[in-house]
Nucleic acid binder design. Structure first.
Length: 484
RNA sequence: GCCCCUGUCGUCUAGUCCGGUCUAGGACAUCGCCCUUUCAAGGCGGCAACACGGGUUCAAAUCCCGUCGGGGGCGCCA
């Protein structure tokens, strides 16, 4: 039975790179019908917080990654790690170290200034019992270091193949800090062993940690799990994706109107391709097609544009009914929601959505495109005003068109178009003069679905009322009015 | 500096394991055209890559060696 885990440390928000690691673990578990475990690595108490843990859970839930066991909090298991460290000490596989970090730092600098390569010098390993006692009597706190044996560690990475490291490259790393708290290497091995983890799937940045951890498994007399190291997501400058490249928080993208399925596809399609077509794949398809050995070794570059394209494509494919639950909370927040939209006005709303969704890259854009249809509280784009409403003929011709439209009994797109074009040709002007002016007047924007559909959806009363150049002036953004 | 990983269009990738079907396919982006009342969408088309150098072979993007480039790690962080 496959057992995998996602083990974030709650020292910040959920990073998109971490989310991708979680996602691949989850896909693998679901594909193999195994168990996905969530573990919170909060042994660095100073930097961890319960609040951050919650944010991580929220992010996973948003993406649709559910866990079968946990969350296991490492902070509740400290005594177990201490026991294990003591056991290694008793077995002679680890030793006490009384060096202070500052002392080590001085020695390190000295060696490096002479062009050498620093590695912990194993000084405390050679301490006699008397010397150790003296240290303790002086009140020196001890850490426990692992005694790295000579040799070479090899392992077969499921993505990279054979990886081999000489132990001379590995220093006697600390297992238990002088304050009694475990380090990452200890707690991760103890917990993975305890949880029966069969596959460790994590970022490439852990490759160099793996031999240390394998050594620990061996010290405990256990067989190490299989390892799969995922290529790291890079920024546009090809450096590990971080804050300086822009926003890396997963939930930020939710707030920007990205749908979780689009994000899921985007993350999954970095270093992996679910199938031959470029499209949104369903979760089920991805679970079915998932395979670790089809993951690429290359580090992908985070491409926001691709994410938005996937999102726009998903929005376009979704039915109005499917979109509605995602739109509603944000619309409520913006005061654009009304219960009738999912009841008596549902058909109308559906048409409105169908016309607008095709030109939206995210939910927020879509909602803002809906605004002038839902409220009179909208502004007129000053650029559109300058470009389309300042025509000299408009003050004279617009009332005539308005009069024509007022005569219409069926305020429908086809009739509206006919009437407008007739008036334009009667006045000897291009129909586009009216079209552009009406778009800016009725919606405040220069971009929209076809104007005749827009007018129909707006309804006769609203559409005619907005055909007013004087009133339009008042809709310009405040700071623009004064500068005229 | 040392160690490890990695190298196909600007980007994500297919192909690499099991050499020939690859004059290297798709998609995003970009450019042009069509459609058109705007913007999208859609349709059509263009630009654009096997890092380089040696081998092996009848044949190499695919196998081997080297060079160069990129990344990551070298904490009493995780």
């Amino acid at each position: 039975m496959v057992r995998v885990r996602f083990a974030p440390s709650p020292t910040g928000y959920l990073h998109v790179g971490a989310a991708r690691t979680a996602l691949f673990n989850w896909l693998f578990a679901r594909h193999e019908k195994g168990i996905f475990i969530l573990r919170i690595e909060d042994t660095d108490i100073a930097r961890s917080s319960e609040e951050m843990s919650q944010v991580i859970l929220e992010g996973l839930q948003w993406l649709g990654l559910d866990w079968d066991e946990g969350p296991i909090y490492q902070s509740t298991r400290i005594s177990l790690y201490q026991e294990k460290a003591e056991w290694l000490l008793a077995q002679g596989l680890a030793y006490e170290c009384f060096c202070q970090p500052e002392e080590i730092e001085i020695r390190r600098r000295e060696i490096e200034s002479r062009g050498g390569v620093w590695k912990y010098d194993r000084r405390c390993f050679y301490l006699s019992p008397e010397e150790k006692k003296k240290m303790k009597d002086k009140g020196r706190k001890r850490a426990i270091r692992f005694l790295v044996p000579p040799g070479r560690t090899q392992f077969k990475d499921l993505i990279h193949g054979l990886i081999s490291v000489d132990h001379r490259q590995i220093e006697d790393f600390v297992l238990l800090r002088s304050d009694g708290l475990p380090t990452y290497h200890l707690s991760v091995v103890v917990d993975d062993l305890d949880s029966g983890i069969t596959h460790v799937i994590r970022g490439d940045d852990h490759i160099s940690n793996t031999p240390k951890q394998i050594l620990l498994y061996e010290a405990f007399g256990a067989r190490p799990p299989q390892f799969a190291h995922l290529p790291l997501i890079l920024g546009p400058d090809r450096k590990k994706l971080s804050k300086r490249h822009g926003v890396t928080s997963l939930l930020h993208y939710r707030d920007q109107g990205i749908l979780p399925l689009a994000m899921f596809n985007f993350l999954a399609q970095m270093s992996w391709s679910p199938g031959p077509e470029e499209r949104i794949y369903s979760i089920e398809e991805m679970i079915k097609n998932f395979s670790l050995n089809r993951i690429s070794k290359n580090s992908p570059i985070f491409d926001l544009n691709k994410l938005e394209w996937l999102n726009s494509r998903l929005i376009k494919e979704m039915k109005a009914e499917e979109l509605l639950p995602w739109l509603k909370p944000e619309m409520i927040k913006r005061g654009l929601w009304h219960p009738s939209l999912e009841k008596e006005r549902l058909d109308w709303f559906r048409r409105l959505l169908d016309l607008n969704k095709v030109r939206s890259r995210n939910l927020i854009d879509l909602i803002e495109a809906l605004r002038p249809f839902l409220t009179d509280d909208y502004e007129i784009d000053p650029v559109g005003y300058e470009k389309y409403l300042k025509n000299d003929k408009l003050p004279q011709l617009l009332p005539r068109l308005k009069e024509d439209l007022a005569q219409l009994n069926n305020f429908e797109a086809s009739s509206l178009e006919k009437v407008l074009r007739q008036r334009a040709s009667a006045e000897g002007v291009e129909a586009s003069l009216f079209i552009h002016a009406l778009r800016v007047l009725t919606l405040g924007r220069t971009v929209s679905p076809g104007i005749f559909e827009v007018l129909e959806l707006l309804g006769k009363e609203t559409a005619l009322r907005r055909m007013d150049l004087e009133a339009a002036l008042k809709r310009l953004p405040q700071n623009q009015v004064g500068s005229e």
